[in-house]
């Protein structure tokens, strides 16, 4: 199941965010969109997930423009979890996960055996079987995020889009969620696209990185090749050391300072602190 963007233009009202974007999501891999706040990476993810209608171009799912497809038909192939979702008060874990079956149900909304199996499986994979009857409000941040991911898993789609799934979580819960994503990719072959803020987590958990500046793709590729001091400086506007992680062999980025702030070798060159070239 391929997911691609061609000539994609996106805007919020008058404000243009993305112009003529071409993007190919690698099948069966974990892709991470990285970039600064407001660079348009979340907007791109929303468009890939059919949450935002393009002003030009289109997103294609297996060659078909998703904005011309029926919502439920798309939702059977592609699950998308927006940033910081909030459940209504009193909703239990299992009730939430059941909503993941909505795109598979008809007008009557009748629950089939297949639905029951998918819900139980999603709860099992996310280790939430014991918590299935608990209201979401009683869970920890990590558990709650797992419950939302379980809802998206119950959709049983080949593609999973996650917008900052680790926001508001402490480090342990962040790793809990990212390990789950990795497991889903490796054992179930799901194609995953994530927006992540933490550069090192992106490098560690992604097979493919897409660096975004001002609504366009600055560079993309394997983290090992992409992660250079020059790119970090360009994308994030910080000078950084890049080391090699002794555990994974992947690069680790240690930011030193903002570009152009108190560093002698910058005196003549990049003095633009926003880094928008």
């Amino acid at each position: 199941m391929t997911l691609t963007a061609r000539n994609l233009s996106l805007a919020y009202g008058e404000r243009r965010i993305v112009d003529n974007l071409d993007l190919d999501i690698p099948v069966g891999k974990v892709t991470c969109l990285i970039g600064r706040n407001g660079c348009g990476k979340s907007t791109m993810l929303k468009a890939l997930g059919r949450l935002l209608t393009p002003t030009g171009g289109a997103v294609y799912l297996e060659g078909q423009a998703i904005h011309t497809m029926a919502g439920k038909a798309v939702a059977r192939q592609l699950a998308v979890l927006p940033q910081g979702p909030v459940a209504p008060e009193g909703l239990t874990v299992e009730s939430l996960v059941r909503h993941g079956r909505f795109p598979h149900q008809g007008w009557m909304g009748l629950v089939t055996k297949e639905d029951e199996r998918a819900v139980t499986e999603a709860l099992a994979v996310t280790h939430l079987l014991e918590l299935r009857d608990r209201p979401l409000t009683q869970l920890s941040g990590g558990q709650r995020q797992r419950a939302w991911i379980a809802m998206a898993l119950a959709q049983e789609t080949p593609i999973l889009l996650l917008d900052e799934p680790t926001t508001y979580l402490d480090v342990a819960h962040q790793i809990e969620v990212l390990e789950l994503v990795k497991e889903l990719n490796q054992t179930r072959g799901r194609t995953v696209v994530m927006v992540l803020h933490d550069l090192n987590q992106a490098v560690r958990y992604a097979d493919h990185l897409v660096a975004v500046i001002s609504g366009r793709v600055e560079a993309e590729g394997r983290p090992e090749e992409l992660m250079t001091p020059a790119l970090v400086r360009k994308v994030f506007g910080v000078d950084a050391h890049i080391f090699t992680d002794p555990d994974t062999g992947k690069p680790i980025c240690v930011p030193r300072c903002l570009v152009g702030v108190g560093r002698e070798e910058n005196a003549g060159g990049a003095s633009n602190p926003t880094g928008n070239l």
């Binding site: 939702a75 979702p85 993941g100 795109p103």
Partner: peptide, 14 residues
């Protein structure tokens, strides 16, 4: 029920 989850989640569910 699906609309009660918020517009983006509901849209994502089709």
């Amino acid at each position: 029920d699906v609309l009660a989850l918020g517009d983006d989640v509901a849209r994502g569910l089709g």
